[in-house]
Write a protein that binds this DNA or RNA. Structure first.
Lengths: 226, 226
DNA sequence: ACTTTAGATTACCTTTTGGTTACATATTTT
DNA sequence: AAAATATGTAACCAAAAGGTAATCTAAAGT
């Protein structure tokens, strides 16, 4: 099955150039001139890579990506931009980009960078649409909520990604180091005890009566959903 | 556990600059001035990322990476090179590189690119450990429990590793010295009698009725699972 | 049978670890 | 800007794990 690339660039010429060349390279390409419908498409379709211009009419591209990341949308992103000072490049990576290419660019180099990112991220791309279920709990990643029985419980970003990683790794004990890596995205200087508190709050939220034991503590190791 | 980065660059100053900054960013760094021992290190150590100069005394860096790829060594590679024509950059990607940064480079940008590649190249799923079985006992190392018949019994860290080593060495008598070495990891000043108590507690836990005799005592030698 | 010796058992105590809460800071919403 | 919310940090407490030592028991040698 072809891999899907979503492009956002307000310059129609560039959009066409990219669509032409990436299609020729065997990808399915979806082009957009602004971010208006991007989020919905990301949720509804299986998108493997985003190519994003930074100078967009409605929003600065890197801010848009930062927003996506905060919603647990981790599709790889390559920035494409005339802003090419090192400061701006660094910002692109800090906001969650996977690569950064300055305009004007060599189209073949872009295609190669696309391939490199896809090669590396393959298999690790999370299904955005698919919701995760466990016992009587339905986790809706996009809406940031869990349905437990008839009850809808809103979750914060942190709670969503913590619960997500626990449930998708069900049956495995996740230690604090692992959780810090994937939920806190390696943020520097985060105390491991932070995990305890986050877990405690999550438990409290999804099971205030403490009757379900969704999340078990494995002393000396970490936490798991069994 | 820290991620390991291997660097190959014949310029000692650059090597030191990278070692300093990547160590500061929390990585374990191994620097090399040529590729002589690189392949052996890649095989023997767990290396998560390679930073490779292209101008090496013994071989062209991208050819070296191409060789690695042909040997199914798929560790991510970031090229670092004074060769920065688009043709040469393209060659870097074609030979299997994940990113390409032209010298001179901004060290902070490099660190960010390193993070981006590592973030993308590691899966977010915890690896499953193989489980061990013996008689009617299933030892689940992921969940730190044994299933005996229908019954699930949670184990502590010590109990898990003790039972694991006994069962995986089934048929062999393990003496206290051996157990102290592998279960207690040679911790200083551990009294050999400690093993007796640990074994006693483990027996009690997995067979409170004392009817199964999973673990036999061999007087004067040690313990075994037959 | 008696003695010796290794292992089992038990009780005790220290250390480690996680839970809990309160507070501070940062972020988001209004 | 103010209020509300989210989340990190630190302090404190409780529980669990596990090491040690004293005592008991059983096996091996005489």
């Amino acid at each position: 099955m072809k891999e899907h690339i979503l492009i956002v660039d307000d310059d129609n010429d560039i959009l066409e150039l990219l669509e032409y060349n990436l299609s020729a390279a065997g990808y399915d390409v979806l082009g957009f001139l602004n971010t208006k419908h991007v989020r919905r498409v990301l949720i509804e379709e299986k998108i493997d890579l985003i190519i994003m211009d930074r100078n967009l009419p409605d929003i600065e591209g890197s801010y848009y990506v930062e927003m996506l990341r905060s919603k647990n949308i981790n599709t790889p992103v390559i920035f494409l931009s005339a802003k090419n000072s090192t400061e701006e490049i660094k910002e692109g990576f800090l906001k969650g980009g996977d690569d950064y290419l300055a305009k004007p660019f060599d189209i073949e180099e872009l295609v190669l960078r696309v391939k490199a990112v896809l090669r590396r991220s393959r298999g690790d791309v999370k299904e955005l649409v698919e919701n995760v279920e466990y016992r009587d709990m339905k986790l809706d990643l996009n809406m940031h909520k869990v349905q437990i029985g008839k009850l809808d419980i809103m979750l914060t970003n942190l709670e969503t990604s913590l619960l997500q990683i626990l449930v998708t790794n069900k049956g495995k004990v996740l230690d604090r180091e692992f959780l810090l890596k994937y939920v806190w995205k390696d943020a520097e200087n985060i105390h491991p005890k932070t995990v305890n508190v986050a877990i405690k709050r999550l438990k409290e939220k999804i099971d205030p009566a403490k009757s379900k034991e969704y999340i078990k503590t494995i002393r000396g190791v970490g936490y798991l959903v069994a």
